[in-house]
Simulated assay, not measured.
Amino acid sequence: MPATKKIAAVTGAGSGIGRAAAVALAQAGFALALIGRRIEPLLETQEIIRSAGGEAQAFPADVGDAASVEHAFSQIEHTFGRLDVLFNNAGRNAGAVPLEDYEVDFWNDVVATNLTGVFLCARAAYRLMKAQSPQGGRIINNGSISAHSPRPHTIAYSATKHAVTGITKSIALDGRAYNIACSQIDIGNAATSITERMNQGVLQADGRMAPEPRMDVSHVANAVAHIAGLPLDANVLNMTIMASAMPFVGRG
């Protein structure tokens, strides 16, 4: 790997926002470490990048499992020698479940992926960025507009996304001494398979079911690539990118 080549890792890289961001980062000149639970989708993303002349390597891992995350980042260090950017993207949707019907196992599963997974990957990247030479790097956490305003009956998802904001701010503070910047991108209604249901209608704060506008996922991917390309003495601490006409401003 050329010394001037920058390395980016993307979690949840097998589909949706993760795949689109990985491709955009490759187009911006990064070599990609692709992280996700299932190898087949990661290999599909890898092939998309390689067929366009980019560099990518798949590293299967469960972001909610500490040993799995540590193993993946150890492999990334062994393969690439360093890490310049982590797009901490992996997460799961939780649907709409009334609070009184929430099961503890369901809550724990959402927390394991959306919160503990973000922490584990950030910790592994932080350790690598702190130890490498030259020191430093950038961690970009995928929050959500639900980090600011919840949808109805989404207490677990909303709680974890609010908590990601705390992780982002803590890393942005603690990373200063080691040239590690941290950003959060809060995304609203990117057009992926997960949001296809919005075409038919989703629950609104007033109890109605209504369709919602979506935006092309490439706009999110390009925003991630823009943040990743900034010098480490500049940071986008928070960015909200959303379908312009979606009910977020004034939600409720």
Rank of each mutant, 00 (worst) to 15 (best):
I7L: 03
A8M: 02
A9S: 08
V10C: 00
G12A: 01
G16C: 04
A22P: 00
A24H: 01
A24F: 00
A26R: 03
A28R: 10
A31C: 03
R38S: 12
I39F: 00
L43I: 14
S51C: 02
G53A: 10
G54I: 03
A56K: 08
A58E: 01
D65I: 13
A66T: 12
A67N: 06
E70W: 11
H71D: 15
H71S: 15
A72H: 11
I76Q: 09
F80Q: 08
F80N: 04
F80L: 06
G81D: 03
R82P: 04
L83A: 08
L83M: 13
D84L: 01
F87K: 13
F87R: 10
N88S: 13
N89D: 05
A90I: 02
G91C: 10
R92C: 01
G95E: 11
G95V: 10
V97E: 00
P98I: 14
P98S: 10
L99K: 07
E100R: 14
N108I: 10
V110K: 05
V110C: 06
V111I: 15
T116H: 05
G117V: 12
V118I: 13
L120G: 05
A124R: 09
A125Y: 02
A125V: 03
R127V: 09
R127E: 14
L128P: 06
M129R: 02
G137Q: 04
I140H: 08
G143H: 07
S144T: 14
H148I: 14
P152E: 05
I155G: 06
A156P: 09
K161I: 11
K161V: 12
K161Q: 09
G166A: 00
G166D: 03
T168P: 01
A172H: 06
A177N: 03
A177F: 02
Y178L: 08
N179L: 09
G188C: 03
N189V: 00
A191L: 09
S193G: 03
I194A: 11
I194E: 10
T195G: 06
T195L: 05
E196Q: 12
R197G: 12
R197Q: 14
R197A: 15
M198Q: 13
Q204F: 07
G207N: 09
M209W: 10
P211K: 08
E212R: 11
E212C: 12
D216G: 00
V217N: 01
V217L: 01
S218M: 07
N222R: 13
A223S: 15
A225S: 03
H226V: 04
G229C: 05
L232V: 08
N235A: 10
V236N: 11
L237S: 14
P247T: 13
F248T: 11
R251A: 14
G252K: 12
G252Y: 14
